[in-house]
Structures are given as structure tokens and as C-alpha cells.
């Protein structure tokens, strides 16, 4: 017996509250400034800015500006595609530790030919220095940085 399949799509809209800390972070981000918050207990600067330290469980209110340049902590070259993928492959996704931060943020690394893995491997390693390339028309989202490019 041929298996019968019912096909349908569920598309639902969402509206996520940013909260005061993310709202302030993205206000600064729109002006091309990146902020973290320093934990009074462990001393780490957490980026993006947080309302509390997950390790010390204390509230954070000391805002610290970090640079829009940093170091690749790890990376991958994404060459497969799937339904619902936010980015168009191929692309390089990396964890980048910005200068002045104790944590790394995920973002894209681009600004060079991404069509060939071996060429990408020649440009990108753990430890590669990168710098943010900002959009002209910033909107206050994480995509105001188009990508990071090797310095």
C-alpha cells in the first residue's frame, strides 16, 4: 500500500520583547558602538550587554564599550542549505571575541571570495583578526554589521 501523506504549512507571526538592556544595546549599536556589561563579581565583560551574569547570578549595570575589531575563536564554512536558513550559503559563520570582551559573539566573516573552501581556509583560521563592516543605513539589529572582514 502506497503511504499517503498530508501536506500543509504552519506560518505564525511572533513579536519578541527586547527588554531594556537589549533595547539600549541596539540603540548604541545603531550608532556603530558595541557595549558589554562588566560583572562586579567575576570581572568579566559580557558581550552583548546583559542584565545579569549567568555564572555569578548578580545584576550587571556597568556598561563598557568594546571595539568593533576582534579575533576569531572558532569558525565554520557553511556549504549546505535547508528550509528556514537565515543566510544564503556558502558563508563563514564564526565566533568572534571583540577586543575588550571576555565572551565571543556569532557573526559572519566575508569580504573575500567565498566560492572555494580551500581559499577560505587560506584566509580564515582560529586566531584570525577581523573588523566589522557596518551597513550605511543601520536599523538597530545585529545585522547592522553586514559581516566581519579579515584585517
Amino acid at each position: 500500500m502506497e503511504p499517503r501523506i498530508l501536506k500543509d504549512t504552519i506560518a505564525l507571526p511572533y513579536q519578541w520583547a527586547l527588554g531594556p538592556v537589549n533595547t539600549r544595546f541596539f540603540q548604541e549599536f545603531k550608532e556603530r558602538r558595541i557595549f558589554g556589561t562588566r560583572c562586579p563579581k567575576c570581572g568579566r565583560v559580557l558581550v552583548p550587554a546583559r542584565a545579569f551574569c549567568a555564572r555569578c547570578f548578580v545584576p550587571l549595570d556597568e556598561w563598557v564599550q568594546v571595539r568593533d575589531e576582534g579575533t576569531i575563536k572558532t569558525w565554520t564554512y557553511v556549504a549546505y542549505s535547508y528550509v528556514g536558513q537565515p543566510m544564503q550559503p556558502p558563508y563563514v559563520s564564526a565566533l568572534i571575541q571583540l577586543d575588550g570582551a571576555d565572551t565571543a559573539i556569532p557573526h559572519l566573516v566575508a569580504g573575500f571570495d567565498l566560492s572555494n573552501l580551500e581559499e577560505v581556509r587560506a584566509r580564515i583560521r582560529v586566531g584570525t583578526r577581523v573588523r566589522a563592516v557596518w551597513r550605511e543605513d543601520t536599523e538597530g539589529t545585529i545585522l547592522d554589521i553586514r559581516y566581519f572582514e579579515p584585517v
Partner: peptide, 14 residues
């Protein structure tokens, strides 16, 4: 979470 991470994290293989 939707503000910082999911744009860049490419499924489980990524």
C-alpha cells in the same frame, strides 16, 4: 534566542 544568535548558527552541523 532571536536577537543575536540564530541568524548565524547554521543548524546542528554549523
Amino acid at each position: 534566542e532571536p536577537f543575536f544568535q540564530r541568524q548565524f548558527v547554521a543548524g546542528a552541523p554549523g
